[in-house]
Simulated assay, not measured.
Amino acid sequence: MVNQSFWQGKRVFLTGHTGFKGAWLSLWLSQLGAKVTGYALDPATTPNLFELLQLNKVVDSHIGDINDAANLFRVLDEANPDIVIHMAAQPFVGESYRDPVGTFQTNIVGTVNLLEAIRKANQKGAKIKVVLNVTTDKCYENVESIWGYRETDPLGGKDPYSVSKACSELVTKSYRDSFFHPLKIAEHGVAIASARAGNVIGGGDWSSERLIPQCIDSLMANKPIFLRRPNAIRPWQHVVEPLSGYLQLVEKLYEEGAAYTSAWNFGPDFADCRPVREIVEKLISIWGGQLKLEKYEQPLYPESDLLLLDCTKSKSQLSWHPVWRVDQAIEKIVEWHRAYEKNEDMLKISIQQLEQFMLDQNVRCHSHG
């Protein structure tokens, strides 16, 4: 489980802090007592979680492009962090078909820019100890196996997004092997790893390209929900699940270094890898709607029908385990957006959900030894 005392006063440089996952992580880190410097583009949607929770009050927020190497280095250098968590990305498969060049630039060269900035900062005397590159479960060469992918399985992909994330993993490995080798950690002082998460869902996501925001928009507007691939099976999990894994992994990297400098999967148990249609029907049931599900006549772009993660490594070596089943995750989403509809204090609601997760994580940890 996450160790709150570890994070007190830690200086964290977080790229992508204005995004959906980044905003949740910014909130959590600030609640844990970390000093967060964020570097990202402006929030991509209106409304958005970062502004709604007024996270600029607790994060030293810098609006900038990961492709602007000089500005990135300047902000990183001034922040003088202990820990770097890289989440800035072009995160959508659909957008990668519309803008493959921009996707490759941001997700590959952006990773290079950050790792190079870290290397140069430490050469100047900085003491960055931990680097975590957050990628995706889509970085694997997906042959639609009924077995979950393990961290040692081949990287790959077909669409530009998946390939760009596989390349980001290879860039991370290259920098680890070339400049931050685990066997020379006493010399360079940097423990670097990557994290691959499943499909995240949660309150405060307004992206038109993600399933849950599309469904909530349809429910609130009383219009049909169009599904791209209703029978596709995905590893669904509440956004705080992988975030807890990232935090636990960073703690291990900081305290024990070389033993944890590799790739790590963070996904749900196989029982929560469900078809899209089932997730939507559950959301409608909890929300209380009676909406028609319709399928797109023509697929917008090619997509796989099956994607599973094997998280045995994270469970056995990090003692990380999923806490909320997918039904609970959907209940939390409905609770969050119902509160938003009523114009309630969403910072308070979000903190309450984080605190409930940590309580549940504590109970699960002690009940399973």
Rank of each mutant, 00 (worst) to 15 (best):
P242N: 08
R228W: 10
C167K: 01
E141F: 11
Y149F: 15
G257D: 04
P154R: 12
D137W: 12
N231H: 13
S244T: 09
A166I: 01
G198A: 09
L249F: 04
Q123N: 13
S145N: 13
C215K: 03
T152Y: 14
W206P: 00
G148V: 01
Y254Q: 03
A166Y: 02
V190T: 04
G156S: 07
L155E: 03
L227K: 00
R150F: 00
M220T: 10
L132Q: 01
P235I: 07
P182G: 11
S178H: 09
D137I: 10
L227I: 09
A126M: 10
C139R: 04
D217S: 09
S174G: 12
K223P: 00
T136R: 05
I216T: 07
E209P: 00
K173W: 07
R150L: 01
P224C: 06
E255Y: 03
V250E: 05
K223I: 15
F226M: 15
K124P: 11
K252F: 08
E141N: 13
F179W: 11
K158A: 12
L170D: 02
A197W: 03
G156Y: 00
W236D: 05
C167V: 06
L219S: 01
L211A: 03
S244P: 07
L243I: 15
I192V: 09
Y254T: 00
W236C: 01
A193I: 02
W147R: 13
P235A: 03
D153Y: 08
A195R: 03
K165C: 08
G156Q: 04
T136M: 07
A197E: 06
A186H: 14
D177H: 15
E151P: 02
S218C: 12
G189Y: 01
I128C: 09
I216P: 05
E141A: 14
Q123A: 15
R234V: 04
A259F: 14
T135W: 02
V131P: 04
P182W: 11
V134W: 06
D205P: 02
V200A: 11
V134R: 02
K184G: 06
T136H: 09
D153K: 00
T172C: 10
A186E: 12
